[in-house]
Nucleic acid binder design. Structure first.
Length: 561
RNA sequence: UGACCCAUGGUGUAAUGGCAACACAGCAGAUUUUGGUUCUGUUAUUCUAGGUUCGAGUCCUGGUGGGUCAACCA
């Protein structure tokens, strides 16, 4: 027992409103917490889903409960097994295990029987109106709807017609099954919502067994109920659906699951609509769902994001009912925080400038020990070759330096990272006046760190040995959209007009050769957050930090002063 | 113009009728073999008008502002 307040564990964060609801339920005697993550398999998961996943699985874990993975596959025209597989992979990658894997389509028979029950109770009817007629007779938000001429059909006729719908006797759109609730209700969703529509479409799991499919509102609450979900958590826009959710459960007298809503995640410069992301993929504006510029989980994975960093992000954005737009900088902070702890550093040069060390013996190769990760002593060190000719980054040399420029200048001295102090003696230019080479001398006594006379230099730069350097392809990328909110569209434009033409730039780069995991021709990516990651598909694992490029923004700021 | 949801620094999230705080971003400084990291300091917040109360960010009423809802999508 620790009585010293200074040594107490840091205070845990305050409960979010969902945790408060759950704790109140527990205090009231509820003994079980069971949540679910219910994606429709019609696209890939994105960072917004990550928030929902972390919430649902996190809540279940916190209260020793369970969380199901349920595919809401009630609309076969949009869905595919490709999406089912990707969703499972992404949830697993995020680090979560589902208690059970379920599909709304597993419950089609039960759902059908319940629909028959509603008909028998006089609470559902088959409507022959066209889609257009149904729409206009529903009224508007300010004017009440009018009843369908088919609303008062007998139970027997409804039963017969619904069975015929299932049997495939009607064409798509010829009939629907509707709940009989209230055509004048102030909530549009309660104006005799559609329960079943006819769709002669092959389903990715049930094949051609069914030609009628349940609607979301009819299926979702009942699926929750079947799985005995205690807390059905969804986003704010489903708020108006809750009365319907409760209505079906009440009328059917089944397990009372309850729905709670939270505000979905929005990120600056990011498109979060699955439908629009699908358009980007289909129009080939991006190379696929895992194009590293996409906000999808698989793209983040490919960019070198860790599951830990995504989870930390989900935790930091919080949970509330207020609409929010999170600064993309917070996501980037979360990766940097994690990568800074675990990533091994490597040296790289993007815009090479040749440097000849005139007093270093020709043909000699020396190996210099470099620490892999200054933040983590356990990550060890590596030997990097050093020779008479090296490359540094052009940005690390300035002929006429502004104030506070700490790197190489004519006559100035700088430290080669982990190596020697070098001094620029001569700037060699071509006929056009372009700098093509620097001739420097090195201080043989300055290897590694100290210098013989104790002098210190402020600048430390990256370098690669010219004869040993490995050429690699570097993808530099930025935000996909130029607009802070790509959904906020000006007249006459679409969201694709805001695509950032510089979101992806490919460049050659020179890397130090001592990377066991790096070979010539490898592709690398440069994050705007300040690090390199290898393309996930070619080389998962290794990470490269680069000062020069990574801090370009800071450098630009200094230059302005 | 109907019903419902929401309103706290630049951005998010706390404060559960009792000193408005934490994180990100910003700014300034220190440390540093990455202009990174780390550390320190600092700028900046309760939409509005009433009411209840000894006391209101919190409760009540009105207003204002934002969002959602009129797919046989989820």
């Amino acid at each position: 027992m620790n009585m010293n307040p200074e040594n107490e564990a840091p205070k845990e964060r305050a409960l979010n409103f969902l945790e408060e609801i759950i704790e109140a339920d527990i205090a009231r005697g509820q003994t079980r917490v069971h949540t679910r993550f219910p994606p429709e398999p019609n696209g890939y998961l994105h960072i917004g889903h990550a928030k929902s996943i972390c919430l649902n699985f996190g809540l279940a874990k916190r209260y020793n409960g369970l969380c199901n993975l349920r595919f809401d596959d009630t609309n076969p025209v949009k869905e595919d097994v490709e999406y089912v597989d990707s969703i499972k992979e992404d949830v697993r990658w995020l680090g979560f295990q589902w208690a059970g894997e379920y599909y709304a389509s597993d419950y089609f028979e039960q759902l059908y029987e319940w629909a028959v029950l509603l008909i028998n109770k006089g609470l559902a009817y088959v409507d022959d109106q066209t889609q257009e007629e149904i729409r206009t007779s529903r009224g508007t938000v300010t004017v009440p709807g009018t009843p369908s001429p088919w609303r008062e059909r007998s139970v027997e006729e409804n039963l017969r017609l619904f069975a015929a719908m299932r049997a495939g006797e009607f064409a798509d759109g010829a009939k629907v099954l509707r709940a009989k609730i209230d055509m004048g209700h102030s909530n549009m969703l309660m104006r005799d919502p559609i329960l079943y529509r006819i769709l002669h479409t092959e389903h990715h799991r049930t094949g051609d067994k069914w030609c009628i499919y349940p609607m979301y509102d009819y299926a979702h609450g009942e699926c929750d109920s079947i799985e005995r979900i205690t807390h059905s958590i969804c986003t704010l826009e489903f708020d108006v659906h809750r009365p319907l959710y409760d209505w079906f459960i009440e009328q059917l007298g089944i397990f009372p699951s309850h729905q709670y809503e939270f505000a979905r995640l929005n990120l600056t410069y990011t498109m979060m609509s699955k439908r629009k992301l699908l358009q980007l993929v289909q129009n080939k504006a991006v190379s696929g769902w895992d194009d590293p510029r996409m906000p999808t989980i698989c793209a983040l994975r490919r960019r070198g994001y860790t599951p830990e960093s995504v989870r930390a992000f989900a935790e930091r954005v919080g949970v509330a009912k207020r609409d929010n737009v999170i600064d993309l900088g917070l996501l980037e902070f979360c990766v940097r925080e994690d990568l800074n702890r675990i990533a091994e550093r490597r040296m790289a040069v993007v815009n090479p400038l040749k440097v000849v060390i005139t007093n270093f013996p020709e043909g000699k190769t020396e190996y210099i020990s470099c620490i892999n990760n200054p933040e983590n002593p356990d990550s060890g060190s590596r030997e990097v070759p050093f020779s008479r000719e090296i490359f540094i980054d052009r940005d690390d040399f300035m002929e006429i330096p502004p104030k506070k420029f700490f790197r190489l200048t004519p006559g100035g001295e700088v430290r080669l990272r982990y190596g020697y102090l070098i001094k620029c003696e001569e700037v060699v230019k071509d006929a056009a006046g372009e700098i093509i080479e620097l001739r420097c001398t090195y201080d043989p006594e300055s290897k590694g760190g100290s210098s013989s006379d104790g002098r210190k230099v402020k600048g430390v730069i990256h370098w690669v040995s010219a004869p040993h350097a490995i050429e690699a392809e570097l993808r530099l990328y930025d935000v996909l959209f130029t607009r802070e909110n790509p959904d906020d569209i000006e007249e006459g434009k679409t969201f694709t007009d805001y695509l950032n033409p510089e979101s992806l730039v490919t460049k050659k780069a020179l890397l130090e050769p001592a990377l066991a995991s790096v070979q010539a021709g490898d592709k690398f990516q440069f994050e705007r957050v300040g690090y390199f990651t290898p393309d996930y598909d070619s080389k998962p694992g290794a990470l490269v930090f680069n000062r020069t490029v990574g801090l370009k923004d800071s450098w630009a700021k200094i230059a302005e002063k």
